[in-house]
Amino acid sequence: MSDERLRELYTAAMAARPRGGETAHPSPESIAALARREGSEESRLATLDHVMSCADCRRELDLLRSIEQAGGALGSAERQSSRRWFVPAALAASLLLAVGVGSRLLRQDADTTRGGSEDAVALIQPGSSAAAGGRIVFAWHPVAGASRYELELLDTSGGVAASAVTRDTSASPAAVEQLPPGEYRWWVRATTSDARALRSDMRSLRLTGR
């Protein structure tokens, strides 16, 4: 039997295991410790042994170690950059930020927020403010292949003040009518029929008193 055949058999054996089976999963902290190379080798090997035989935990490790390595790579780049190019970089960044913010502000349509990528959800309304106590219609552009949309309105503490799930490209959550004047933010997530999730930017919404 070749290594290739053994790999196929191993893959089949892992696929045949019941998902979320009877063995206890290592804690998220243990998987994070594995990704960070923290703790004893023995405990990390024990965690890795489970992770490599559990599809759910493996996905969690992939996420955590991607974040760990990105943090390390960016931190290293930041340190190098600050050592070598601190003054010129700061000036360039300020200029870029000023140009970027300025041009974006100029381009910004009062009622339309474009997503960060071509695949993001683009919000339409409401604009930056609306009267508190009344019905508010939230609307966005359709996303190709979307099977449902989730709308969330967050208060200043980040809590969900109102939400809705719909197949339509607009929603008017009744809870919004009960909200006091203040600052809020809202966003929409689209889920496509092939289970992809696309998101909008966050938009500010100020509910004003009548």
């Binding site: 991607s66 974040i67 390595q69 990105a70 790579a73």
Partner: peptide
């Protein structure tokens, strides 16, 4: 950056 690193590890973009 996470996406770039995650390509090596079959990172699920929805998770990120």
């Amino acid at each position: 950056m996470v996406r770039q690193v995650g390509r090596r590890y079959r990172l699920d973009e929805a998770d990120l």
